[in-house]
Design a protein around this nucleic acid. Structure first.
Length: 807
DNA sequence: GGTTCCCGCCATAAG
DNA sequence: CTTATGGCGGGAACC
């Protein structure tokens, strides 16, 4: 296009004589941001050189096909500038890269139309050829689905943009979606690490879980019903439905902003991950969750948009918002389609068909053959780290943060009180869980799945699943809903501190005999009082050590933060932390962080709504893998309910699937096979990942360290937050924001100052880190810092990954 | 006329 | 500041 425009509109002479005039910093500024990476000066020069050469070379023929040029005044410096830059960009990028692109190809666009003249319009790449989906496909073609972790899988945005000949902006779109699936992770500015599908199943498992916790399926139902019924009078009804959803969302934590992390993939480069605005990533995850949770795996656009709009208070108010959301969903859908995860279909409701997408990706439960992925990082799975991304400053966003924050704080305090008074017993935040009918079902389902998986695992591919363990660090995993209510989270976090695993009343903990060292497994309150059992997998050797990516990260990751009192890190922690900060004279930055953390936590004070559908909280703490290989937190209870529920739901959802264009789809009926789908397929529960985890016995040092941190035994700094640090997962899960930030920022500037102890600190820790993180040279160093002295707020130290990354 | 969704402006974070 | 990111919505291709 650029070519055409240029040839059509630019007066060569004019340009040549006024190059400098146009290429002013100011004029170029806006164009640079999205068009080039190079410095202004550099770019300017390139543009000049290109155009000077161009003009000199050439007889410019105005293309006949002027096309859209008309709207712009050809003689407007700005418009011309824009064209110039567009035309020059490829060259600029190539030069920057040092690539020697042949002149012809560079200028080709400019001349090409001349040569092809008459058809240049045809030449015009059709819209489809420029689609995000296609672009994504091209992108994917460049990388293997299952890259060897050992190799360098770096992705340079500039290179990609150049090679694919697209604007950077487009690449960001793709990357954000891929990132949401953990197929890539940002490793540094302008740089991503390619993971391919190695972590996909794991990610899907987690997303599914989170989706379930968020009751997305129910929400979808409500919306569907609302849509169907309403149409007539019901604006109100609809509103009610939405309201409910909203409330729920709020309670859970703003659905709006949390990102589900995958251990081992997150935050490779601290600084890079701290960006607040990542809604596309989050939206993408949520969108995927909808598929994973809905029974017929079909999600219509409008339903998805409504749910994703979520807490928008204005409720329906904006058509615009809806439209925007839909646009974004298309963007995401296009990428997902290119990933072959979903396909476009249509659902026919009473009135007409609506655009929708159907999940055609892997069925979750089971790991695809590529054992590597799932198996490799089972632990990650367990850890469900849904984090809210940093608070969004944007006032525009309707984050209900404040209120919830306040509530959260209160609940936290209450929890704390309770805890203090009754340390050994888990705090029961509220009855609401009990009331939740859903819970049992889910638990039952989970249980069934887990069971199946366990059995299978035991017998079958053990070898593959086995964890070589020795080298890998132990890891703590907390599995929970991202935005579960604070109390729960609090409990979870606290857990470590309590002497032993705390099991809520009515819960049953089963600890595998295999596991020599008992690890404190906390079972946060359960809803409904359904009994749960924890299964710990016996350690087994991992098949291929190499296969497992970055075992190291886990070890360090566990650092969490603690308040000065040494209380456990939790939702409360956040609040406390804040106060602590204030008192402790912590840097503003730190405080800021804390704030964000707390914000996150605040997300879902579920406690408020006891009767509310509780989100399933599966909180499993796996302390270092070494210590506790793997575990399942399985509720033992009413298995049958689910099926019925599902069936009912299915009935209620009056929609049927239309065959996709190709018409290959089976009958719509399939949608309802709850039993087979849910129970037979182990996948749903996301248990698989866990299974995979296997570990070896912990070394004494590690054990010691862990226990210390967990508060099981006194550590060097008793009562200090440090101890709490061990359960990184906690952070991840609930305090997600915190952990995020930590990961992102802590490392150098932030963390350091806070750390009382210099890097070389405690031996135990050192050994601990060391062992677990063989890969990281820095590992040893990191631990030291972890040791905090006074009562300052602890900033969790984060994964070794970070260090590793550092050159 | 509704769907799709490309394009790129522009705000904001990071360095 | 300059650069990197990515939200967002106009409006055009597509159907």
């Amino acid at each position: 296009m650029e070519c055409t425009s240029i040839t059509a509109n630019i007066n060569p002479v004019f340009l040549r004589n006024n190059c400098d005039l146009f290429l002013t910093k100011q004029n170029l500024k806006s164009h640079f941001n999205s068009k080039t990476q190079g410095s202004y000066k550099y770019t300017k020069e390139i543009i000049k050189s290109i155009f000077c050469g161009y003009f000199v070379m050439g007889p410019l023929t105005t293309p006949k096909k002027g096309r859209e040029v008309g709207s712009v005044d050809p003689w407007t410096p700005t418009s011309n500038l824009k064209m110039l830059i567009n035309a020059a960009i490829p060259d600029i990028r190539n030069r920057e890269k040092g690539l020697e692109m042949d002149k012809h190809s560079l200028l080709c666009p400019i001349f090409w139309q001349d040569t092809e003249n008459g058809e240049e319009s045809e030449r015009w790449i059709s819209r489809k050829e420029k689609s995000l989906g296609l672009l994504c496909r091209k992108f994917l073609a460049r990388y293997p689905d299952h890259p060897n972790p050992a190799t360098n899988n770096d992705i340079c945005l500039d290179d990609v943009a150049t090679e694919l000949s697209v604007e950077r902006r487009r690449i960001y779109d793709i990357m954000n979606v891929l990132e949401s699936l953990h197929m890539v992770s940002r490793s540094a500015k302008n740089r991503y690490a390619w993971h391919g599908r190695t972590k996909l199943s794991q990610t899907l498992d987690i997303l599914k879980k989170v989706g379930e916790d968020h009751k997305y399926s129910q929400q979808m139902q409500q919306i569907r019903q609302g849509l169907l019924e309403k149409e007539e009078f019901d604006e109100e009804e609809k509103e009610n439905v939405e309201l409910e959803v909203e409330v729920e969302d709020r309670e859970q934590g703003q659905k709006e902003l949390f990102f589900v992390e995958l251990p081992g993939v997150e935050f490779k480069a601290a600084s890079v991950n701290s960006r607040k605005d990542k809604s596309l990533r989050v939206m993408s995850q949520k969108f995927v969750m909808l598929f994973l949770v809905s029974n017929p795996r079909v999600v219509s656009l409008d339903v998805a948009a409504k749910i994703l709009i979520g807490e928008d208070h204005g409720a329906e108010q904006d058509k615009n918002k809806f439209k925007t959301k839909v646009r974004r969903l298309y963007d995401i859908a296009n990428v997902l389609r290119s990933l072959k995860l979903i396909e476009k279909v249509h659902v026919t409701e009473e009135r007409g068909r609506k655009p929708a997408f159907e999940w055609v990706g892997p069925e979750l439960p089971h790991v695809k053959g590529i054992g590597s992925s799932v198996i490799l990082e089972p632990r990650a799975n367990v850890e469900n780290c849904a984090k809210k991304l940093f608070s969004s400053p944007g006032a525009k966003r309707s984050f209900t943060r404040h209120p919830s924050l306040i509530k959260m704080a209160k609940s936290i305090q209450d929890d704390r009180r309770k805890i203090n008074s009754a340390p050994s017993s888990p705090v029961k935040s509220s009855a609401r869980d009990a009331s939740n009918p859903d819970f049992p079902n889910k638990m039952a389902q989970l249980a069934a799945i887990c069971k199946i998986e366990l059995d299978q695992e035991e017998g079958r591919k053990k070898p593959a699943a086995v964890n070589t363990g020795k080298t890998c660090g132990s890891q703590t995993t907390l599995l929970s809903t991202p935005n579960t209510d604070p109390s729960v989270s609090a409990a979870a976090q606290r857990a470590p501190r309590t002497p032993l695993a705390v099991l809520p009343a009515g819960s049953v903990a089963y600890i595998s005999a295999h596991c020599p060292s008992l690890i404190p497994v906390l079972l946060p309150q359960h809803q409904g009082g359904a009994p749960y059992a924890i299964y710990l997998q016996s350690p087994s050797p991992r098949p291929n050590p190499l296969a497992r990516p970055q075992p190291t990260s886990y070890a360090v990751r566990s650092m969490t933060f603690e308040d000065k009192t040494g209380q456990s890190p939790t939702g409360q922690c956040a609040v406390q932390a804040q106060s602590a900060c204030r008192g402790a004279d912590i840097s503003p930055l730190a405080q800021k962080r804390m704030g964000s953390v707390s914000a996150c936590e605040s997300s879902p004070p579920k406690a408020k709504r006891p009767d509310n559908i509780s989100k399933v909280k599966l909180c499993v703490f796996f302390c270092f893998q070494t210590l506790v290989p793997a575990g399942y937190y399985i509720p033992i209870s009413q298995p049958g309910v689910r099926d019925k529920e599902i069936q009912d739901l299915a009935k209620e959802n009056k929609f049927e699937l239309l065959l996709s264009p190709t018409g290959s789809r089976p009958s719509p009926a399939r949608e309802i096979t709850p039993t087979s789908i849910r129970l037979l397929k182990p996948t749903s529960a996301a248990a698989s990942p866990y299974n995979a985890q296997k570990a070896q016995r912990p070394s004494p040092a590690i054990l010691n360290f862990t226990l210390q941190n967990l508060g099981l035994i006194s550590g060097s700094s008793p009562g200090n937050g440090y101890a709490a640090s061990q359960t990184p997962e906690h952070l991840n899960t609930l305090a997600s924001p915190v952990s995020l930030q930590q990961r992102g920022m802590c490392r150098s500037s932030f963390l350091q100052p806070l750390m009382a102890t210099p890097k070389g600190a405690g031996p135990p820790q050192a050994s601990f880190f060391h062992t677990p993180v063989p890969l990281s040279p820095l590992a040893a160093v990191v631990p030291a810092s972890a040791h905090m002295t006074t009562k300052t707020v602890y900033i969790p130290q984060r994964k070794l990954d970070v260090s590793m990354e550092d050159p």
